[in-house]
Nucleic acid binder design. Structure first.
Length: 569
RNA sequence: UGGGGUGUAGCCAAGUUGGCAAGGCAACGGGUUUUGGUCCCGUCAUUCGUGGGUUCGAGUCCUACCACCCCAGCCA
């Protein structure tokens, strides 16, 4: 069995955000001659999460909407944190989300030689200098938020001396941290970023792509704007924390002055989700401290975790579309994400039966050894999804929760003397229960009405409940994993100084053995379905073993079960 | 108490040159239903962080204040 997701379609937009307004304005006034070129620039220092999905959908979505292009560029200027494993996973995740960078996969490290040449130019025109101050001294000289900084004693070296020193930095004549290249801007600038920012540092670390070819590495602020310019990017869209960096972005491009149609930076608010940590530092901590099974643990907010859990690319794209793009810091309700998966899965997931918490149901008047076969549709509203045959016998499993010995009036399912429908099979009436020495129900007895074959009554009598069921003799034993939120509190990131690990939900994961209908023995990894009334499940991508299904619960149907239980008590 | 940003419903979020405050999620009520699901129908901002001002008319303009976020990495 297989069900796959289509590639990123052109879903309708909810409302127009400020970035689209800006692009429209540029298209009006003729800037870039109508060209729209964006980029998604992750640092390969971790796996992508749902927050990145927002940026991916924005950047690739903008390009698609305006018939433009979007590059995938790895911002790999800090060799000590970056790894090939991360670039591989990032590429896989972007593709899985349904986006295509075509032949435009770049690395900032592709530009190291060019960047170095730009740095020499800056030195030549007297706009950059080599500083001998230590990191601590530079911090002291920088001043504070309210006091201006002081110039470094090395600030006025001649371009010739700076050039010589910078070349020797590259040649490896100095130790790590001994010297840096700094932009010569303004140590009294009210914008801290502009107080002679570091452009290059000496760092002997193995780079995942350039190996040991370099011992000096360019900093983000120098690299990013130039990479954008080199690639012909028009709209460089990043998150709010870079607002202060925009002045430097402009300074570098303008003082080099070689990019007549240069890119400009625009910022939007990053995603915050209730119950969810989206800080890479914390996510990596969950992985390295083995608080989760890995980056793709189904409880993780990573793209790979969500994929394994059974979220579909379309549902994630829809979510990103619905949350909108603005500059206001916000905290999106997890319920919206849930709604998006449910909406997609409701239309696309086949309906099958599985019993998670089984109790035996014996039909007293059903002949022993007899087997009925019912042809059951995979989807009640979509005939094109076809059907499968499900065997029915005298002894079945039903959900333990679907029976109550002393049931309140509002309980619609099975209870002594009450009649319910076994889905697509027969009406049955409970005649009694059998218990063990401790008084636990071991078996429920009932009789069936042969006249109700298929689940319809000819005399027009109605039943309030419809139960899912599985024949004990034909059932496929399976492992089902029920996941809850990893964090039991609304916004674990909100508590600034608290250790977020204290907020982990101890009940975030539970494994149960279940009984499924026979057709589920043949599912493929990643196949999603809805177990009638129990929620949406996805056959585990990673732990898939043919014939021995393992399912992760993607989403519950709704919270109504809790409410029903509450009303009944 | 430096600079840069942001405040529209419980949560997101549209709001054009000032002219009756979109939409989605959540919630609540009703109908359909062989999933207590889905679907359908209805309700949900006399008010836009606050106070002044301009105007026939202000979420939009002016003004003063308040709250929150970001910046003192040789991280990105």
């Amino acid at each position: 069995m297989s069900n796959t997701n289509e590639a990123a379609g052109g879903e309708a937009r909810i409302g127009k955000d400020f970035i689209r307004t800006i692009i429209d304005a540029h298209n009006q006034d003729g800037r870039y001659a109508g060209r729209v070129h964006t980029r998604f620039p992750p640092e390969p220092n971790g796996y992508l999460h749902i927050g990145h999905a927002k940026s991916i959908c924005l950047n690739f979505g903008l390009a698609k909407e305006y018939n433009g292009k979007c590059n995938l560029r790895f911002d790999d200027t800090n060799p000590s944190k970056e790894e090939q494993e991360y670039v591989d996973s990032i590429q896989e995740d972007v593709r899985w989300l349904g986006f295509d960078w075509e032949d435009r996969r770049f690395f900032a490290s592709d530009y190291f030689e060019k960047l170095y040449a730009f740095a020499e130019q800056l030195i030549t025109i007297g706009k950059a200098y080599v500083d001998d101050l230590s990191a601590e001294q530079i911090r002291e000289y920088r001043g504070t938020l309210t006091e201006a900084g002081r110039n470094s004693p090395h600030r006025d070296r001649s371009p010739e001396e700076n050039l010589d020193l910078f070349r020797r930095m590259r040649a490896g004549e100095f130790a790590d941290g001994e010297r840096v290249l700094r932009a010569k801007i303004d140590m009294a600038s009210p914008n801290m970023i502009m107080r002679d920012p570091t452009l290059y540092r000496i760092k002997r670390a193995h780079h995942h792509r350039t190996g040991d070819a370099w011992c000096i590495y360019p900093m983000y602020d120098f690299t990013h704007c130039l990479s954008d310019a080199i690639e012909g990017v028009t709209h460089s869209v990043c998150t709010l924390e870079f607002e202060n960096n925009r002045e430097l972005y402009d300074w570098v491009l303008d003082t080099l002055g070689q990019f007549p149609e240069r890119p400009y930076q625009y910022e939007f608010a990053r995603l915050n989700l209730t119950y969810t940590v989206l800080s890479k530092r914390k996510l990596i901590q969950l992985v390295t401290e083995k608080l989760v099974s890995g980056w793709d643990d189904p409880r993780m907010p990573t793209i790979s975790g969500m994929r394994r859990r059974g979220y579909t690319p379309a549902s994630l794209r829809d979510f990103c579309e619905r949350i909108g793009v603005s500059k206001a810091n916000s905290l999106v309700d997890f319920a919206l994400l849930e709604h998006c998966v449910r909406e997609d899965l409701n239309a696309t997931a086949p309906r099958v039966m599985g019993v998670l918490n089984p109790v035996k149901l014996v039909i007293e008047n059903y002949p022993e050894g007899q087997v009925d076969e019912f042809d059951m549709p995979f989807h009640p509203e979509d005939e094109s999804m076809g059907s499968r045959v499900v065997p029915f016998a005298r002894e079945l499993y039903i959900e333990r929760d679907d029976f109550m010995e002393e049931a309140p009036k509002k309980f619609f399912r099975l209870a002594p003397g009450r009649e319910v429908r076994l889905r697509y099979a027969y009406y049955v009436t409970c005649t009694g229960v059998e218990k063990d020495a401790e008084g636990n129900i071991t078996e429920i007895r009932c009789t069936y009405d042969p006249e109700t074959k298929g689940g319809w009554s000819k005399d027009g009598r109605k039943v309030k409940g419809t139960l899912h069921w599985v024949s004990t003799a034909h059932a496929v034993p399976a492992e089902v994993r029920l996941y809850d939120k990893l964090f039991g509190v609304e916004n674990p990131a909100g508590e600034k100084d608290a250790d977020f690990r204290d907020l982990l939900n101890p009940d975030s994961f539970q494994t149960v053995s279940a009984f499924l209908e026979p057709c589920l023995a043949t599912v493929e990894p990643g196949w999603s379905c809805q177990f009638e009334r129990l929620g949406y499940f996805c056959s585990d991508v990673r732990d898939h073993v043919p014939g021995k299904p393992v399912f992760n619960r993607t989403a519950t149907l709704r919270d109504t079960w809790a409410k029903i239980a509450q009303k009944q008590s």
